[in-house]
Design a protein around this nucleic acid. Structure first.
Lengths: 378, 378
DNA sequence: CTGAAAGCGCTTACAG
DNA sequence: CTGAAAGCGCTTACAG
């Protein structure tokens, strides 16, 4: 097994200088094809792998990307990171995980981020739900340190590259689906209103109602906190309404709250979806296995992760090129164009409605959806 | 904002040499307290953070730890990584995530691991469920590259440090709990028998039965694949048995299979836990929210993550000391390995039984458990 | 197309 | 207790 091989060993073995070995390592042009071949062969034979820390130091850039994430135990993060990991894994870059925010998503972590940047370990930062730290990250980016935000808290400051989900449309489609199934009294359990995403989903809900000419009933809208407990509580409040005002469907702002709503229904002997239809938002891994399986709005986290990694990589390569304009991109797949710092740096990913049993779709699919919307309460 | 501060700047500002700054950075003794204070103050004022790649290069070791994990989307991994991250975050070390194995847990990834080691980026490796790569990792460790395995595939090769869960005892306790509730016909859905963990859990199940003098009925043991579908299929097979041979309780080798068993029961109009009690294994985050909430055996992944990180860190520091025995000469030249490389390098973590509604505990808790074990089928 | 040399930011014997 | 110097493994102008 190869022991502590360095570029110098390869140079000696191939009968060239370290500089030339370095050139083929970095895929520079202007190396004699025969020489290149020879060096490549020696490296292969010896199983040489360059010391990534040394290259970073010497080249003034690193092949490390940092990911700032809130708790890994939040269900969507692993899915997101799977996408990121897959893209990064196909490049010479490595991923460093900074799990911050774990306790308190509201806190400004500029101090920690600042430390991270100053160690110069990573040459780009991917920040997932940065919260109040978004501002600091934006400032970093404006000082040309590559940053990419994945967030849903409205517009990021200072044109920082940003990926989000189209929450409004997702909620709109979910609500419209319920309307098409014949529901007129559709309740909505909101997420915490301190999050922009809760407002976006609420707006989608309102838009669908309005489009169908259904007046908004304020009694059918309650605020939860994304967790099952409040889903249960809100649903119970709906069920306590006088019969003619009770909803026949509930659109919850998260799958967890939908679980709570289903549990509340079952406790009262209401059948889902026969007595009340339920739709969630998120498509947690477990939602397909609930009883009944939950209809929900899937957020494309895996795809977002991929997209985010691709974009960040492009920025990193671009900023590297700005410092060494002489050479062209290492791996073309990741360097889309010279104009990487131009739009689109703002991507809004589409959601998709996943129809399962909890909304009763199967039973109603055959009846035309344009039936005028009579009350279907039984 | 501080721009590209180096140790040289700090040295100049503090009126000392780079060497002395380096000494306080590395907390070496033999620095005049006043000098140390002064340097510390300057670093603080300037917001200096050392370049971690340069220290690694110069010192011949890195402050990076690698984590080799299978898919992050496997529910227990995030929990594990939360523990790891918390411990590592409290040290000057950083964590690099290598998400390998994603597609195929059976594959030997020695090639990838070898590359990782040869980049010399990380100074220690934490491998979660390494599968066939365990052998290569063991070889690494025997060549004194710090490695820590988290696995449940039986004894690791070559005394590699290793953390696992006591699956046998976990299964034993779950089964015993069902026995105490009065069950005599307890079925078991095994995980895939190619995994050691499935055998361990089966053994715990057998042990509990034997202890209670309940003969093992082979018809009540079926092999699943950890996923809900097979849980459903196996449960259906049990329900198809003639009434007197049907189980009154099912102990599933995973929560997912328990979900499937519950779904199968519901489809037949059997109530859980009244008609059939169900217990799982894992305590997935969603298991508390199932209807009914699932009684299950919790695996202490968070604690395992913490423990694993602590142990790996200890090995890394120890191997570092072996290369520079001069400092803090605790385990200097005598027998450097003695203190740290010795037991306990094998840790078996205890599980805990989480009692929720699906086993019917609440209803039976008041009846004495030593009632002689009459058939309670209704 | 290629090599010699300087340098990236830090650490570590080696001498005081 | 402290400094000058060499060196970690690589990259990059600068000269050919």
């Amino acid at each position: 097994m190869a022991e502590k091989l360095t570029i110098r060993d390869i140079a000696r073995l191939a009968g060239v200088s370290k500089a030339t070995v370095s050139r083929v390592l970095n895929q520079k042009p202007d190396v004699d094809p025969a020489t290149r071949e020879r060096i490549l062969r020696v490296m292969e034979e010896q199983g040489f792998v360059p010391n990534i820390a040394a290259s970073g130091l010497a080249g003034g850039r690193s092949r490390l990307l940092g990911a700032l994430i809130p708790s890994l135990t939040w269900p969507l993060i692993p899915e997101l990171m799977r996408g990121v990991g897959e893209v990064v894994g196909a490049t010479p870059y490595e991923l460093i995980l900074y799990s911050i925010n774990d306790v308190n998503h509201e806190k400004d972590r500029s101090d920690i981020i600042s430390r991270i940047v100053r160690t110069r370990l990573v040459s780009g930062l991917l920040a997932v739900f940065p919260g109040p730290s978004a501002k600091y990250l934006a400032a970093l980016h404006s000082r040309s340190f590559p940053v990419l935000l994945i967030d849903d808290q409205g517009i990021p400051p200072e044109n920082t590259p940003w990926i989000s989900v189209d929450n409004r449309v997702g909620a709109y489609e979910a609500t419209r689906h319920l309307i098409r199934l014949g529901h007129r009294r559709i309740a909505h359990i909101q997420g915490p209103l301190k999050y922009q995403v809760s407002h976006d989903r609420y707006r989608g809900y309102c838009d669908a109602l309005e489009e169908a000419g259904i007046p908004l009933d304020p009694a059918l809208v309650l605020e939860g906190d994304f967790m099952p407990q409040t889903g249960r509580a809100c649903a119970n409040a709906f069920f306590d309404l006088p019969p003619e005002r009770r909803p026949t469907a509930i659109f919850a702002g998260s799958d967890y709250m939908a679980y709570g709503a289903i549990a509340a229904a079952e406790q009262r002997g209401l059948r889902v979806p026969d007595d009340v239809a339920v739709v969630g938002f998120d498509d947690n891994p477990s939602s397909a296995h609930m009883e009944p399986p939950l209809t929900t709005v899937r957020q494309p986290f895996y795809e977002m992760g991929r997209r985010a990694a691709e974009m960040l990589l492009a920025f990193v390569e671009a900023s590297r090129m700005m410092h060494h304009p002489s050479q062209n991109g290492q791996f073309a797949s990741v360097t889309p164009s010279a104009a990487v710092f131009d739009p689109p740096v703002r991507v809004k990913m589409p959601t998709s409605l996943i129809i399962r049993a909890s909304c009763g779709a199967s039973r109603h699919l055959h009846s035309p959806s344009e039936q005028g919307g009579g009350d279907r309460s039984r």
